[in-house]
Write a protein that binds this DNA or RNA. Structure first.
Lengths: 350, 350
DNA sequence: GGGAAAATTTGTAACGATATAGATGAGGCT
DNA sequence: AGCCTCATCTATATCGTTACAAATTTTCCC
């Protein structure tokens, strides 16, 4: 078997020279330290865990030796023995092409995990399987100590499952479930509300908003904020039909181009994504409509992209890297032990 | 200890009903299958490995039972025993803000790993430590069976180290080292060459190119392709000074804005990144220079972004998702065993 | 039917860590 | 001295898997 061969090959992989002071040779284990210090493996283990029943002086000595030879506990062994994986799983739908969305979040997560024993594993969720599958799989086979996922739904099955089993997780977005759960969310209600107000303040008379697919909770938040603002101001409005923020950008543009050529076209657009905002601009351009006069636009900004877009566009910022960072921190707190649920929730303000 | 509690909690996690046919209860192991079939654990292990010395009928029976109860080998145990981690490590610099660069690559990698036993782990490389650190760490502590990294340098230390130790890896970009190594690269020479030719063909008289930091190999490739074209055509040229593709986008724009206000400004720009292309457009806009007349531009396109940009920009496509996919496939091939080096190299054409 | 060869199955040890329970020795008290 | 307590350290078993060597059963041939 080639697999087997490879394992052995990996194991005996060593260069010509023997172990130098940095221990280039065989990987140090507890046994190595035990031999070096004359202690038992068990003692070394306890000493490194800073167990109080080991003499302080011994603990220090062991720690010194461990540091000197560059000992690192074997994750596989720890995992096998304790059941802890030291892994955080980020469930990602590779289909989501949302520009840099994942990258920012990964960066934030990475930063939150920095200095801990935790690793970040990307678990793909392919759209041809139910959304809950990867989560169930991770939980059932204990592939991770905690799960991060995005695009939460009002009655999210993943949340239910994980809550039922008391499995640590955090999601980007809220549910409408009765029981509270950990989350990090952006205040999309306020985003849409303020975006609408801004458009109206600059003269828009009929607003339009492109929403995410209806199944996501934040679609409702956006809609609610939008509706509240237009009702308060008594202006005309519509909700983009047939396209969502998840539609292919060309489809969004085609829709917008069509709509902009019809009578009673909206003159103010709210875009929850950068690409859809560009699609608005492209459609306006193709109709020779002038931005800021014929068509107004407020976009959600999640990257530095819009700093380079001309004409300048009114934007409201959502910090996805911070969201990732918060998710990481809160998840770690949850994994460390039960915590008051409020301490595991965060709402990013506009 | 709470950690321990957590482990145990996870372990005995079971709902009210006992194990149904899907085996909701205790996680099935080889032992479970052994009891169910009346075979020894060793036999089951061999059977699942499809060892020829186990009777075919037995193998089939074992496989059936395993499938029925949803058995999955314990990764930690396998890893401990065999030394194989079933992990591919993608070393990422979270500092790189290059829009969606990582996401596309991750998507491709994920796709390549689909259906295999391999997981993708993101290993961050924080810019405050030497580039080689994460690689050394992964290798020394066998955190992965293979490494993927990007932004290769002409005399890349990581390549040297990994080659010396015969550790499976693949990098995005080539080196100038004497010994061949696995890589996936995009033909940036041709990109720059063709971009320059296009600009000249549409009337540009003085070209400019914004290069990546000089330490990366692909900076040389771009420069070489660029220089070849301008020399062939005998047009004026310059190389952007003081800024690189890694500069903050505002800095790039500031540079361009300044340069566009000076005498003998270039009238044709080659941009190796989407953001820098937008910066060119923004600068031109701010100077009221018209694109296609006063300023020409050819950009590298790595996402659907430019489909929504107006005025339309001439682009040349680089498929990063495919690059990720290729990297995954080639790395897997390398991990499976030694292979002719040419079979582990891929050059994406423009 | 006896015995060797082939086919099939099994026991044991080990990977590196840790939970549990137990061992050792020093010192205090009567 | 004898007994007990406390502080410190240690032996054993175990997590789930697989390499290796060995045991068992079946098959085949004379």
């Amino acid at each position: 078997m080639s697999l087997e061969d490879l394992g052995d090959k990996g194991r005996r992989a060593k260069s010509g020279r023997a172990a130098a002071k940095s221990g280039v040779g065989a990987k140090p284990t507890l046994k190595t330290i035990a031999e070096l210090t004359g202690l038992a493996v068990t003692t070394v283990s306890h000493a490194l865990a800073d167990a109080p029943q080991i003499a302080l002086e011994t603990r220090q000595r062991v720690r010194k030796v461990a540091a000197d030879i560059g000992y690192l506990p074997d994750r596989a062994a720890q995992r096998l023995r304790t059941g802890r994986t030291n892994v955080i799983s980020l469930v990602l739908d590779p289909h989501e092409e949302i520009l840099g969305y994942a990258t920012s979040m990964i960066n934030g997560l990475t930063e939150a995990l920095r200095g801990t024993a935790y690793h970040l594993v990307i678990t793909p969720h392919f759209s041809d399987t139910p959304q809950i599958e990867p989560v169930r799989h991770i939980m059932r086979n204990r592939m991770a100590d905690g799960i991060v996922f995005t695009r939460t739904e009002p009655a999210d099955e993943r949340v239910k499952l994980l809550m039922e089993n008391n499995f640590p997780f955090i999601c980007h977005g809220r549910t409408e479930l009765a029981t509270a759960h950990p989350y990090v969310d952006y205040d999309n209600y306020s985003f849409a509300y303020h975006a609408a107000k801004k458009l109206i303040a600059t003269g828009a008379r009929k607003l339009s908003i492109i929403l995410p697919p209806e199944r996501f909770t934040f679609a409702h938040h956006l809609k609610h904020g939008f509706m509240t603002a237009v009702r308060e101001e008594g202006v005309g409005f519509e909700i983009a039909k047939g396209v969502t923020l998840d539609s292919k950008s060309d489809d969004i543009r085609d829709y917008l181009f069509r709509r902009m050529g019809e009578p009673e076209r909206p003159d103010g657009y709210i875009c929850g994504g950068e690409v859809s905002a560009l699609a608005v601009m492209a459609s306006a351009y193709d109709h020779r409509l002038e931005l800021g006069r014929d068509i107004r636009l407020v976009a959600k900004q999640t990257s530095g992209l819009f700093d380079q877009i001309r004409p300048r566009v009114e934007t409201i910022y959502e910090d996805l890297a911070e969201a990732g960072f918060l998710m990481g921190k809160l998840l770690l707190k949850r994994i460390a032990g039960p915590a008051p649920i409020q301490e595991l929730q965060a709402l990013q303000t506009v």
